[in-house]
Write a protein that binds this DNA or RNA. Structure first.
Lengths: 154, 154
DNA sequence: CTAGAAGTTGAAGTAAGCTTCAAGTCAAGC
DNA sequence: GCTTGACTTGAAGCTTACTTCAACTTCTAG
């Protein structure tokens, strides 16, 4: 049956991604669509799982490139199995942990700044170039872009 | 004396911002420089404090527009006084708190996903469009761009 | 005086993640 | 057959925060 193939509009509605985003993801290699005889995109339902994965990964802060890499490593290059998902989401968790830790450190520094009425911002911990990054040591590979030095071009 | 006026290179070295960034900030209205007879930029030392403020604000996640607005509201339009700084940094704190809270919520959802071996990502909390944003309620005005829906164009 | 370093400008380029647009094709109903 | 609406494509545009470049000008040391 062809009944389980969905149009781009249907996928857009059910996934929350705009059709233009879906086409963009396809060009970026994150998604693949079959085609109707006339050349229109036809998606199997499994693409919704893939899109849910993508959205979750975006929430975690991964770039599309990183997401693409993770999807590419999946055995079937389809949707993650239970074990894949477990391994991947542990990585995500570490990433979130690192980000939370960095932000918490920054908040604490800010708090002490407020406490001291710290007008000499030049010497302040929160304003030192690279300070937040350094405070997490060299192991903080997954530091969110926002907290890497020099302030990344987001 | 002119002794306390610094060149753009000197400010760049001491602030950690590239000269091009300093010129950019000037065009953006965040910074102002006096000029030498020949037209070169000459900065008073106070600009370093302003730059420290900018760097700290960037760490917190403010856009240059937002930073510009905050700087513009300062009485002297110079560097913050003790009270200014207290008020502003409290705002920053709230922002950091909101972001930390959002990320923590996301992490917890992810953890429960791992726990349940959750393959039906489509139904998973972490992958719902808007879920993280909603979990903080309508009051989360300062939700970091990354966690607003639809996933913002960073 | 002159070489070379340092600085100036406006314009264009970069990166990420999409959106928008123009121009044309396909599909479905009347 | 024809009108609509859904879809296709490639190319260009958008936003943020800068960087890079070309073509000059200004200092500074010798």
């Amino acid at each position: 049956m062809e009944t389980d193939l969905l149009t781009i509009t249907q996928i857009a509605e059910r996934s929350g991604f705009a059709p233009s985003a879906l086409r963009f993801y396809e060009r970026a290699g994150l998604l693949h669509a079959r085609r109707s005889p006339g050349g229109r995109r036809r998606y199997p339902r499994t693409v919704l799982r893939r899109l849910a994965f993508i959205r979750a990964a975006r929430h975690v802060g991964l770039t599309l490139d990183e997401i693409g890499a993770q999807l590419a490593h999946l055995p079937e290059n389809q949707t993650p199995t239970r074990e894949d998902w477990a391994a991947i989401s542990v990585g995500w968790r570490e990433r979130l942990d690192a980000e939370i830790e960095a932000l918490t450190a920054l908040r604490d520094k800010l708090t002490s700044c407020i406490g001291c009425g710290c007008l000499s911002l030049e010497r302040c911990q929160a304003s030192n170039p690279g300070d937040v990054a350094r405070s997490l040591g060299p192991g903080a590979v997954y530091l969110p872009r926002r907290l890497r030095e020099p302030l990344a071009h987001p």
